[in-house]
Design a protein around this nucleic acid. Structure first.
Lengths: 289, 289
DNA sequence: TCATTACTGAAAATGAATTTCAGATTGAGG
DNA sequence: CCTCAATCTGAAATTCATTTTCAGTAATGA
């Protein structure tokens, strides 16, 4: 499974390429689809270079062979490492693809870097927790805290989400051994969150962070579920990191669900019952909409 | 660019395959990674068939050649069409991949079915709106409403999100021509939301739904941004439809951002300024965390 | 100017994919 | 149980793609 993405490598190396190789690079970006279905001979002809030059080009990009290169190209082009770079506002064509590709790309990065041992530790703590406090503020992380609540209550757990720093501090002071705090921070520099972590830690709760590796927030926790996405600073554009965080929540919840399978089933049955009842009867409120 | 996904074709054809071909199919699903890097000779050897059989197998699956097949395989394996089916709670191995794949799969479905004309209509309405009211309830849609707010305020628009039906009704009554309602519903059957739509419609607001095609909610709106994801009814499992909704929000926001480029830049500049200020100064509150 | 280095493509060598064809297997009908 | 037709399969040959080797050329620096 290729770890790096081809277009990133290509951009990084662009300066160091020779004239012939730049010609290949240009062809790749402008006519990716053609390149995907072309043989090395055809590609070489179109770029007006010789086949050996193409082979050398592939090697320079870190591929073993032309076919290895083509595989990586196929993957990069398919989901969108093509648009991996920071999205620019001017790009009219295929903004939908850009959004999709950026999201997939972010999620893939997070998945590839996933530390399953940390997830396991976190899931075990959560699955046996008394109270679970989900913290996050500033739009994105607040949403994530909400999602943690939304996913975990379904498993019969006692969760409360808060985006309010003062409340977070108070609640942390009320926690104890066997309780769990899950705090999310995109930047990893939410100082108020760190304070809440510290308080909860004093009283013996397990602290789980979802944040940048080795960030202050990560370091203040017992367990960090790493989400390292470089956003660039284009605030206008959708932040693809949200997809990574969401995925991390789901991964954690999925594992917790497995660990709690039996007790969760009962809660599930009850929620389902409510849902069915309401739906079929008079179609009023739909739970979990 | 291949439209269909290889594993789907494979499953569909599974019955019609001969013994040798089934052997290849089995190898593909069990050792996809190996298959990706293998030559036709190696793959044939491992599946204990001859190379020509592999070629024929590829053709049967609708590919032109072995290399075409390998490209499609690379793409399918890369983003997750492998686990396209509904997630089951029993699946211990690779729950992270399952979550990832289900999410990508949902998003891909939504992207492929995207009606750009509807997006365009919606984006135009939103970009010129006086007030924008984002409605959604029941956990998931409430989150989406929040995200609509979170993305659109950055563009200098006046948005308010609400998950409260009574408030939604009241607010709808206060809207008028030039205002926009965006309501999200996973099930498409949120009756209270439909009431709020009706009220806002009476007073001349443009109604945008994000919901199932042809659902009651969709029909109650002027424009529906279709999100058709079949969830199954496993409430325990993470709902991958959320990713689709999130993507739809980002797509809309992206397009609106393009349309509003100039006014948005100023808001952006201000938010950025705040952000930089706070970050570099005393690292207190991080905006947009 | 000359020597060194890096780039490039022609040609040869290698190796992979496909086509052809003949043998083997299966299944329907006698 | 046999026979024929249809289908499946792999060995060998063919074709084609990829890589290696090597020699020529251009660029760089002393």
């Amino acid at each position: 499974m290729p770890q790096s993405d081809l277009f990133a490598v290509l951009n990084a190396q662009l300066g160091a390429l020779s004239r012939s190789e730049q010609s290949i690079a240009a062809l790749l970006t402008s006519e990716t689809d053609y390149a995907l279905s072309a043989s090395i001979t055809e590609l070489a002809a179109r770029a007006e270079v010789s086949p050996p030059t193409v082979t050398r080009f592939c090697r320079r990009l870190g591929c073993e062979s032309y076919s290895d290169f083509k595989m990586q190209l196929a993957q990069a082009a398919f989901t969108g490492l093509r648009y991996n770079r920071t999205l620019e506002i001017g790009e009219k064509p295929d903004y939908a693809d850009s959004v999709f590709d950026a999201a997939v790309s972010a999620m893939r990065t997070t998945r590839d870097a996933l530390d399953r041992d940390r997830v396991e530790e976190a899931a075990r703590a959560v699955s046996q927790a008394g109270t679970i406090a989900a913290y996050g503020s500033g739009g994105n992380s607040a949403m994530i805290a909400g999602e943690i609540q939304n996913r975990l209550f379904r498993l019969g757990l006692h969760v409360s989400a808060s985006a309010d720093h003062s409340f977070q501090l108070m609640q942390s002071a009320a926690l104890g051994p066997g309780d769990v705090v899950i705090g999310s921070s995109l930047s990893g520099r939410n100082v108020e969150l760190i304070k809440a972590f510290a308080a909860a830690r004093t009283y013996g709760a397990v602290i789980i962070a979802m944040s940048r590796s080795a960030s202050p927030v990560a370091l203040a926790a017992h367990i960090n579920l790493a989400v390292d996405i470089d956003e660039g600073d284009n605030i206008l554009m959708p932040t693809s990191a949200r997809y990574s965080f969401l995925m991390m929540v789901d991964i954690l919840a999925h594992r917790v669900a497995q660990l709690r399978e039996t007790p969760a089933r009962e809660t599930l049955r009850r929620i389902k019952f409510q849902l069915a009842n309401e739906r079929d009867a008079n179609d009023r409120e739909v739970l979990g909409d």
